Computed example of a mutant assay.
Amino acid sequence: MALSPTELFAIDSLLSEEERTIRETVRSFVDIRVRPHIADWFEAGTLPARELAPELGRLGLLGMHLEGYGCAGTSATAYGLACLELEAVDSGLRSLVSVQGSLAMFAIHRWGSEEQRREWLPRMAAGEAIGCFGLTEADAGSDPAAMRTRARRDGDDWVLDGSKMWITNGPVADVAVVWARTDEGVRGFVVPTDTPGFTAVEVPRKLSLRASLTGELSFDSLRLPADAVLPEVTGLRGPLSCLNEARFGIIFGALGAARDCLDATLAYAADRSIFERPLSSFQLTQAKVADMALELGKGLLLAVHLGRLKDDGRLTPEQVSLGKLNSVREAIAIARECRTLLGAAGITLDYPVLRHALNLESVLTYEGTSEVHQLVIGKALTGEQAFR
């Protein structure tokens, strides 16, 4: 009997019964509800986020690793496994969930006031309200300190001016967590998207993450009350802490895309006959799938280890960078190699591999490029700052 890569590495032996149950629940949901439609959504460049969000909320997947306010309060490892199953269908689906829970909800949960938590988190956990996270700007990606969006005090109010770019969920969000420069340093603001002066337009002509709603946010003399500011943090520590939460989900999620590519390729190679033999019977095919299974398995072992460290409160930002760098780099390599085994069939939406490869080009860049994570690890190893 042929083994799956996860069976080869006995990954299930490292997981609790509850973690396996959560994983299987998410896998069953996405296989039934999303997988039959995802190629069409990708081709059309859309995602029915407003329809999916309440369903994801009923499963407890939105902010699932947070405590209270209607959140499920699961382990970090269970959250990672959920991200893996979501991204095994499409990176856009995992992005919807991780931006909601690990960026927008986490920011309010960790740095917000009790009033902000009570107002937004229960609705966001249920999928009744969708959130986005406004940090990146057109000219301020890897260097968020270069942001130009600014908030100034005007009496008791704040007035926000500027724009944000590449914002997942932006076109359909009910609330945006927006980071801006102030005279006090960088501050975060909870911004209802129906506030006058707020506009969001969808980014057109994407070749990656097409089954994801990506927007450009603009703020034109947008007036906010004094209690819109996140009170518990000043400086880049706030948004960077949120990014670490989301990067953790990517450590698992990218491996889901890789697993789906490899599963599809193994099935194709078993069925495809060439020179009167199954494609899977050739030495080069077996060498390729062996190498890919090895990298996938090593990535899963690292991801579970980092999940355990996070559950113990011992995970460091440098270790998150290790995981994100490894998972995304290996996942995109696996997707590309799988495409070679599928031949011409691999460039169609009948198979998931090129769709995953295209999506992973974005995952490779967002929430810290590979080069940024290399420098984070390099600083940890040498003690020298190389960013500037």
Rank of each mutant, 00 (worst) to 15 (best):
S208K: 12
R148E: 15
V203Q: 14
M165V: 10
L306H: 04
D271N: 14
C242W: 04
P231G: 02
L342H: 09
L279Y: 09
S28E: 15
G313W: 13
V353Y: 01
L302K: 08
L309F: 02
V178P: 05
I274E: 13
A78P: 00
E184G: 01
D156R: 14
M124F: 10
L222C: 15
Y69G: 01
R388I: 11
F9G: 00
D263K: 10
P48G: 01
G70M: 05
T265R: 04
P278A: 09
L8I: 12
F189R: 04
P171F: 08
R277V: 09
A104V: 02
L217T: 01
T6C: 04
E318Q: 14
L342M: 14
A125I: 08
V191I: 09
L294Q: 13
L56C: 02
L322Q: 15
D311M: 10
L62C: 03
L349A: 06
G92V: 04
L364K: 13
V99W: 08
R272V: 09
S218W: 10
L309K: 15
T195Q: 02
V328Y: 05
L322V: 12
G297T: 11
R153E: 13
E337R: 15
R329C: 04
T365D: 09
R123G: 07
D161R: 14
V186Q: 02
G162A: 07
K288D: 10
L301V: 15
P144V: 12
V229L: 08
N244Y: 14
S370I: 13
V97G: 00
H65F: 10
T6L: 15
G155Y: 11
E18R: 14
R58S: 14
R110N: 08
Y351Q: 08
E202C: 03
S13F: 06
S142D: 13
E337S: 14
G101H: 06
I11T: 10
F189S: 01
V320Q: 03
G70I: 07
G131C: 05
K379S: 08
G63R: 02
G57D: 04
L96T: 01
W166I: 13
F198E: 03
A290L: 14
V34G: 01
V233F: 08
E245W: 11
T25M: 12
C261V: 06
G299Y: 09
G92F: 05
W166D: 10
F42L: 00
S241P: 00
T149R: 12
L14I: 02
P54Y: 10
E67D: 12
D40L: 11
S221T: 06
F282H: 10
C132Y: 06
S98G: 00
T193P: 00
S321G: 04
I334W: 04
G80D: 03
L301I: 15
A2Q: 13
E318H: 09
L342V: 06
R123T: 01
A386L: 15
M147C: 03
M292W: 15
A82P: 00
V372G: 00
G378C: 04
K164N: 06
F198I: 14
L59Y: 09
G134R: 05
A107N: 03
D31S: 14
E232D: 11
V328S: 07
V304T: 10
A107H: 02
H305C: 05
S208G: 00
A44E: 12
F198H: 11
Q385R: 12
L59E: 07
H109T: 01
F387S: 03
A333G: 01
L309M: 13
I250M: 11
E7Q: 15
E119T: 14
P122A: 04
A380V: 03
V233E: 10
Y366L: 15
A146M: 11
